[in-house]
Design a binder for these strands. Structure first.
Ligand SMILES: [Mn+2]
Ligand SMILES: [Mn+2]
Length: 336
DNA sequence: GTGTCGT
DNA sequence: ACGACACAACGCACA
DNA sequence: TGTGCG
């Protein structure tokens, strides 16, 4: 627990300083900042396959999981670390900033040293910022939703996408939900990917209204799994594969194979247990190949042709064409 | 956690 | 040399 | 001005 020392790691051709390596970040198990760095070293191969080359936002906890936190998007290479790579990212209103690019593990560990536990990842690469090459299907549990229901929702989505010839891959979120990822051919922008997500969510609610909902307003969801299409809005980030959550055991957003769906337990996938999984099984997402979004875009066009509107956008975004009033039904101004 | 400023 | 302090996301729509 | 949503 000596405070004054520094661990220097030689990674990807750079010397990365880990200051206060013995500082406890996870009091429950006693895991330190250096333990966190070693975790990321252990999952480096699948981590870089998932996150490599993408802009990332840091979620920092300089005093560990029990301390205060903040997000950091803007990064500037310093005199001490001139090798840091950044790229321009923009916000919904057009503001531009320089974000860190996860070009190699040195960049990851530089962020870890800043107290970054996990990364929020852009759905595009620094090399091709105008195409979203991932559709992220975010399954959010409403109150009353159990994890077996989340599992059933994932299976339902896999079946629908499979019938359209689209392959998707699952991961835990590190909390109570699941994420399914579709790797896309780089042919569509964020508006198109979100439109596809809206259509997919609506179709799934039609198929299983007892289990699934595409309702943005909480009051309309009930005890159903919300398919959060808005997580695909342009410029939105998602908590990344292999990133560590700020909970007592450091649960990991863990990619897994479909045959594990019925047995996977988010609680048991932590920064302490996941490295062994990776050593034994390798990368569960190794078979990802770019898919076409066209079947879902056709579904969206059918919905629009039949008179449906777009769905509400999240706060912060300007009003979009064909967007319905952005207000919960219970608060909407009365007719006439 | 780091960089800067004032003492 | 040291302590205090600032800073580290998104910023619109609607009633 | 408070509330919407992650
Ligand atoms: Mn979620
Ligand atoms: Mn969500």
């Amino acid at each position: 627990m000596a405070g004054g020392d520094v661990e220097v790691l030689d990674v990807a051709g750079h010397e990365v300083r880990i200051t206060s390596p013995g500082k406890v970040f996870f009091p429950e198990r006693g895991d330190t900042k250096l333990d966190l760095a070693r975790y990321y070293l252990a999952v480096a191969e699948p981590l870089m396959a998932a996150m490599g080359g993408r802009p990332v936002m840091l979620q920092r906890f300089p005093n560990g999981v029990t301390g205060s936190s903040f997000f950091q998007k803007r990064v500037t290479p310093t005199k001490a670390d001139p090798w840091l790579t950044t790229t321009k990212v923009s916000t919904p209103n057009g503001t531009v900033s320089d974000a860190l690019v996860a070009v190699d593990l040195a960049h990851v560990l530089w962020a870890v040293n800043m107290g970054c536990l996990g990364f929020h990842v852009w759905p595009s690469t620094a090399a091709d910022p105008d195409h979203a090459d991932e559709l992220r299907i975010d399954l959010d549990p409403s109150p009353g939703v159990t994890f077996p229901m989340i599992r059933e929702a994932a299976a339902e989505i896999r079946t629908l996408l499979g019938s359209l010839g689209i392959a998707c891959f699952p991961k835990t979120t590190g909390n109570r939900g699941l994420h399914l990822y579709v790797r896309l051919e780089p042919r569509w922008d964020g508006y198109q990917v979100r439109a596809a997500a809206v259509a997919m969510a609506r179709e799934l609610e039609r198929l299983r209204p007892d289990l699934l909902t595409a309702a943005w307003w909480k009051e309309e969801r009930g005890a159903r799994v919300f398919i959060d299409f808005n997580q695909n809005a342009p410029h939105k980030t998602v908590f990344g594969a292999w990133s560590v959550r700020a909970n007592p055991h450091g649960q990991v957003s863990t990619p897994f194979e479909w045959h594990e769906l019925e047995t996977i337990e988010p609680r048991s996938l932590t920064m302490a247990t996941v490295p062994a999984r990776v050593a034994e099984q390798g990368d569960p997402w190794a078979a990802m190949v770019p898919q076409s979004l066209e079947p879902l875009l056709a579904m969206s066009e059918r919905d629009m042709a039949s008179g449906l509107m777009d769905a509400p956008w999240p706060p912060v975004y300007p009003k979009m064409p064909n967007e319905p009033p952005r207000v919960a039904p219970s608060r909407a101004r009365k007719e006439e």
